[in-house]
Write a protein that binds this DNA or RNA. Structure first.
Lengths: 235, 235
DNA sequence: AAAAACAACTTGTATTTACAAGTTAAAAAA
DNA sequence: TTTTTTAACTTGTAAATACAAGTTGTTTTT
């Protein structure tokens, strides 16, 4: 029917249930065999879905016991694959678009290597400022190759997740990525944007996100105010 | 024979080969079917091993192509599971023990919840300063529960990986973990220890590492000089 | 010579089956 | 009543098999 593998469907279902609170911290998910019968799949398939949830840090597994739902992170889990907005959980997250998507040439000294296709397609550039509980927390600069994305510069991004727009309108899924983290002394502009206190440093993240489309990677530079929040990750 | 699962053995073999340079960046690993015949396992087992290598960021896979060995990170991959020393790769890494392992009570305001067994066992405390290319880069504070570890306070840790000692002498394996990251303004002591330039912030990492022994977690607080290096991670 | 088709690889997904090992609660024995 | 044993769960590891789908180089056709 669909093109989406079965294990991925089950993953999406369970993920939604956990985030929406159908299960709460400490709850056991239905056993693997139950999930098999309910969703009409075999155990390896179910286990594949559960492994993905473990990788996301949404559950832990214990032999003999079951799959235990973890407490939603108090922090901001942008180390996980899901991307920024969806990983924050229930906390209120507002987004300001500082620079609407525009088509540019790739900057000189771009910190990542680009494929030929990416290089010759030019890039789409945008800047966002994201708030948690009305306080600015993320400032991010995004570069994406100008392929597969008709009319994206006309779209409204206000308070919408970039990743959700890519998925819904362009069938682009994030499959993984790599990143570097540093602590930096902020520039004057960053201090203003993120409402940084005097002397407060900024957490700098440089990410490359791989997608299901070959030669389509998302490059993000993130400046993070770690005064009240932290970056969280499991491994 | 052993207690170690087959997929883990293959993982260790391939991991060693990649780190030692048997394969270099861009090389293809033997195909899954080849690995099957060579190591006398079935494909699901081989694939399990390869998945673990992907999770570590040592290889990427491409359908129709094969398993591609990634370039050893120029940075310091302590986001990966392998622990600090083994993830740095070939770069020279020296370790100073600032505080030899001693038995203490758990500190008040310990940032993690402890199980009863951990709580009542007391903790082993140690501090290290680690150098890359003769420059101090990590300062880390470690707390481990005082179980399974006979005579550990008598051991020499100079230039040895804590994780290797735990594995070789106590059969303790790191199975995963969680962590938080922040950018902090360093204290005077940190500035001295890490040779921080004026105004240079420090990357702060708080980690809980799960092991194969129940109720045995390693708690580390790391201060990282991100002036010349960065923390690297895949997901 | 260039383009299209094909064959021989590769990894991705999925089923079925089996047993090992850890957990828990009920049943049996002391 | 307390302790021990057992049975019925749970997840972990592993084999054998099948087909789908992406990649690559060769062969065939145009």
């Amino acid at each position: 029917m669909d093109n989406i593998p079965q294990y991925r469907k089950l993953y999406e279902i369970l993920r939604k249930h956990i985030i929406k609170g159908v299960y709460v911290e400490g709850d056991l998910l239905p056993s693997e065999n139950e999930l098999c019968t309910v969703h009409n799949m075999t155990r390896p398939t179910v286990r594949h879905a559960l492994e993905t949830l473990v990788k996301d840090g949404l559950i832990t597994k214990k032999q003999g016991k079951g799959s235990i739902v973890r407490k939603p992170s108090q922090n901001i889990g942008i180390l996980s694959i899901a991307g920024t907005a969806s990983a924050v959980g229930v906390r209120y997250l507002k987004t300001d678009i500082l620079q609407k998507p525009v088509i540019k040439t790739w900057p000189d000294n771009f910190p990542f290597e680009l494929s030929e296709l990416e290089q010759e397609s030019g890039c789409i550039y945008m800047e966002r400022l994201r708030y948690v509980d009305e306080e600015p927390v993320f400032y991010d600069i995004n570069h994406l190759p100008n392929i597969y994305l008709p009319r994206i510069t006309q779209r409204s991004f206000e308070n919408k997740s970039l990743f959700e727009i890519l998925r819904k309108h362009y069938q682009i899924e994030i499959m993984g990525g790599e990143q570097q983290l540093k602590a930096l002394k902020p520039t004057v502009r960053l201090r203003q944007l993120l409402h940084l206190k005097p002397g407060q440093p900024v957490l700098y993240i440089e990410r490359k996100l791989h997608t299901n489309k070959p030669d389509f990677n998302i490059y993000s530079t993130i400046y993070f105010n770690s005064d009240k929040h932290a970056i969280f990750g499991t491994f």
